[in-house]
């Protein structure tokens, strides 16, 4: 967790902890903010295809994303900090994805849900983007066609671990590298 809790066992040193006793937590700012962020993802479900059905199950009663603090989907990118790219991104769709990514406020993370978003999957043809990482930076890849909810939860936990370790200097990331300048 990265939070040190002083319970007053150390008696040989006279310090702030000694004086204040059990009434305070001492930690680094980076860590406490990371800890807070990782349990309050507001996700933007960019649902395009089959994986969306699995996403419904994930939000449903059995798998219940609420347990991991990311239950509340926001349908405005400006209110969200986790972009869930759920499904195939076609070339017609690609500019919209980049636009949505750019509209999100920092810090923001990208979750590639399913093999189509990750690498294009078995749609290696004229219509499909071969992985969203050609367009925007991605934090977690979850393969599977579609991935089982357990896999997605695993991916989400790994993203939480990653977020907990982030530092102030990691942000801002800026807009997507492929963004066209007007």
């Amino acid at each position: 967790m990265g939070i040190t809790e002083d319970r007053g066992q150390r008696t040989e040193e006279e310090g702030l902890e000694q004086v204040l006793g059990n009434s305070v937590l001492l930690t680094k700012l980076d860590e406490i903010i990371g800890w807070g962020r990782k349990y309050s993802f507001f996700l933007y479900p960019f649902i395009t295809a089959c994986c969306g059905m699995e996403f419904m199950s994930l939000a449903g009663p059995r798998y219940d994303l609420d347990r991991f603090g990311s239950a509340l989907p926001r349908f405005s990118p400006r209110q969200a900090d986790l972009l869930m790219v759920v499904g195939t991104i076609s070339h017609k769709q690609a500019p919209i994805l980049v636009k949505v990514y750019n509209q999100m406020t920092e810090p923001k993370w990208v979750f590639s849900f399913g093999v189509c978003a990750t690498s294009g999957g078995f749609y290696d043809n004229y219509a499909t983007v071969q992985g969203i990482d050609t367009l925007i930076p991605v934090d977690v890849y979850v393969p599977g066609c579609p991935p089982r909810p357990e896999m997605v939860i695993d991916g989400l936990l790994r993203l939480q671990q990653k977020v907990a370790k982030e530092r102030w200097s990691d942000w801002p990331r800026g807009e997507a590298p492929v963004t066209k300048k007007i």
Binding site: C50, S90, F122, T128
Partner: peptide, 28 residues
């Protein structure tokens, strides 16, 4: 057309048996 993923083109380049996974993803 935002989810056009070239179903027919992929089928024409797969064997008859390989088409099944593509049909899965029509009405998913």
């Amino acid at each position: 057309g935002y989810l056009h993923r070239g179903f027919e083109k992929m089928c024409e380049n797969s064997t008859w048996e390989q088409v099944f996974p593509y049909t899965d993803r029509l009405n998913y």
